[in-house]
Design a binder for these strands. Structure first.
Lengths: 376, 376
DNA sequence: CCCATTGCCGAAACCGGTTTCGGAACAAAT
DNA sequence: ATTTGTTCCGAAACCGGTTTCGGCAATGGG
């Protein structure tokens, strides 16, 4: 009983003339022979401090290596100079090869502003709610980066209700700008990539092109599918509902959906995938049927996962600059917290085509392909 | 003037609007009709508060949803209840598939203690120094997790000099416990895995076993190599310096080192790799020579990267539970910061063998293998 | 019954910053 | 010479907690 309680000890001689050796604003003030309020206002650019003293304070602060403690400032200002990123961990594919680069971008951008990044993880939507609430209540961050936005995103609702700044990596509402009319976001235009993929395949001679989409829960899935159909439209190809598959979130599901497409009476000679993972899964389905990727069936992916350059044949894909995404998101979020209007903090960038060996002119027509599959 | 003088309003009872809606310790104190010092000490388990009032305070705190601001506490205690993780970003292979799980483990453990995780990245050893110094000076964290320890680690020197708590993921000094005699660490025993790999291969019938090590800058490289040679010793195989290669940090370097081994007059019929990435690189070298992985040449990796289960033949490897590593590291670090002696906060766990198809009985003897390679 | 402990709590100082308010010094206007 | 502004800075309150210190009441010992 009472084992872990703190016992008061008398005569605890503090051997600390200046524990930690930190330079505080008081040290700085007494060194300069002025009040700490003047020092504070000088460093924070108040207009009622003369230019000369401001310079003097700044030089001395520099010389003594003074750094205000953000948490000491926060107690009055309410700002901790930190942004938070909460990763959701219940996704089918937990291995995110881009995370390190994304973090590097975000941390570097934050650091440039003198801010830091706190990170947390959530196991489910509900846990996400708990985690966000806790971070907000304890004021661990002044704003949030929301990766992988969903069509209707519960995180957005929560943060919006609590009035906490956030920026989305991705759009919501299929990009219809209803919910997000006063929200900031950064995104890569997957729809443009999908459209370009179709155009590319058509110009290679393909007439029947399949599509394997991703988890419809995420907003990007819808945008990419729309991009694909716009590609069909732009190339005057007839859309065929049979050629549109959805919901391939993993490599294995990519295999499954590809099988379905290739078993059609009129199979596609080329397939566009919303994600590289699904496209990598396609290799298995294609080779299982005795077909060759890039000749019998052309494959184009999206994301630029590292493995795409190591599979044989190497995967043609649209590469996303994840590091830059992190950098832009952090930067835009900090600016938003500092007061810039959110609806002016939006950026849409393009993915970069990486031409490799998984696509090319069709070796067979769709009919011939069907026969070859049949015989197998 | 006097505009800021708030005039007292009669009906202003306890349920005041309270900008921001947060419950502060003052609210709690006035709600309980006791001083805030009593509340504070009650919540912090001081022995001079009676059990009954302590319970009462805790219940009320719970009911009102009171959460102390860690940065408000920090101003007096010097503790922000956060641990930091600084990732180094200049490594050859920037794609770390384990990062998300590692973070999940660390965040969850920290969260269980009511702590948080702040993250940052460094581009070089020098940048690492800068980043750490900044985080320390601004007291953004109370301690650090140091991933991927080097043989002599500059981070350790810095933190040791500044007296900042840290825990290493990995050991230093080849595990000789010189520098680390009063440091805490968590590690996976790669040396045991390497030793077991040799034993396994010998029992499969292999007589000449090669080894491809990793970057000697990192401590684990030495431990794993020593584990390998201990495996040779345990199986009474004669060590051959020609069969020991070092420094394969990437897939491509794995390919290169494998080529060297297979071009020997007496090539190995099995090769153990310190990392999966190098082992995956081996596939290219082996198939290029017209050989079959798992029959002509057995391959065993270490790490358990996701790709290992997708390559053909699937890679036999020692799987590391990265999520648990993050969890243990965070947990041990928090306990250390809370006062437990560092030299009692050490854990060594084992990697888990995953038997797949990249190893098996040797199809040929070393001499026969050499001839087959020659003919190619 | 008195005195010394002990248990328990409140008042106030404190942590390192920010922000408000008032006033001194000086210049310009009347 | 007085009034009116400006410019610039110091004193003090404040933020939300923690910790020190002292004191009151109850208890126990002689």
């Amino acid at each position: 009983m009472n084992t872990n309680r703190i016992t008061l000890v008398k005569g605890q001689v503090s051997s600390s003339p200046k524990i930690g050796g930190r330079v505080t604003i008081n040290d700085l003030a007494s060194h300069l022979c002025m009040s700490k309020s003047t020092v504070s206002r000088a460093l924070n650019g108040y207009s009622d401090i003369s230019e000369s003293t401001r310079k003097r304070v700044e030089r001395t602060a520099q010389k003594l290596g003074y750094r205000p403690l953000s948490h000491a400032q926060a107690i009055r200002t309410g700002r901790v100079r930190a942004i938070a990123l909460v990763l959701q961990n219940d996704e089918p594919d937990k291995h995110n090869p881009f995370l390190q680069e994304f973090l590097a971008g975000a941390c570097e951008a934050a650091s440039d502003f003198g801010w830091t990044v706190t990170i947390s993880t959530a196991k489910s939507d509900q846990d996400m709610d708990t985690v966000l609430t806790r971070l907000i209540e304890e004021r661990k961050a002044d704003g949030f980066i929301l990766p992988r936005t969903k069509v209707t995103d519960p995180r957005v609702r929560l943060l919006r209700r609590l009035g906490v700044p956030y920026i989305m990596f991705g759009r919501t509402d299929h990009g219809q700008k209803k919910i997000e009319k006063d929200a900031s976001w950064f995104d890569i235009s997957g729809e443009t990539a999908m459209q370009n993929a179709v155009v590319r395949l058509v110009s290679l001679g393909h007439q029947r092109i399949g599509y394997v989409g991703s988890d419809p829960e995420f907003n990007y899935s819808h945008l990419r599918r729309e991009g694909f159909t716009q590609g069909l439209h732009a190339t005057k190809l007839q859309p065929d509902p049979d050629l549109l598959r959805e919901g391939a979130r993993t490599r294995d599901e990519g295999t499954t959906e590809t099988r379905v497409l290739l078993q059609l009476d009129q199979p596609p000679t080329a397939i566009v995938y919303a994600t590289d993972m699904a496209a990598l899964g396609a290799y298995k389905a294609i080779t299982e049927l005795g077909l060759t990727v890039g000749k019998d069936v052309s494959v184009i992916g999206y994301d630029g996962v590292p493995e795409s350059q190591y599979v044989r044949p190497a995967l043609t894909t649209y590469d996303v600059d994840t590091r830059m995404a992190g950098e832009r998101l952090a930067s835009l979020l900090v600016r938003q917290i500092r007061g810039e209007p959110a609806d002016q903090l939006r950026e849409l960038q393009e993915a970069q085509l990486v031409e490799r060996d998984s696509d090319g002119p069709p070796a067979l027509s769709s009919t011939e392909l069907a026969e070859k599959i049949q015989k197998q």
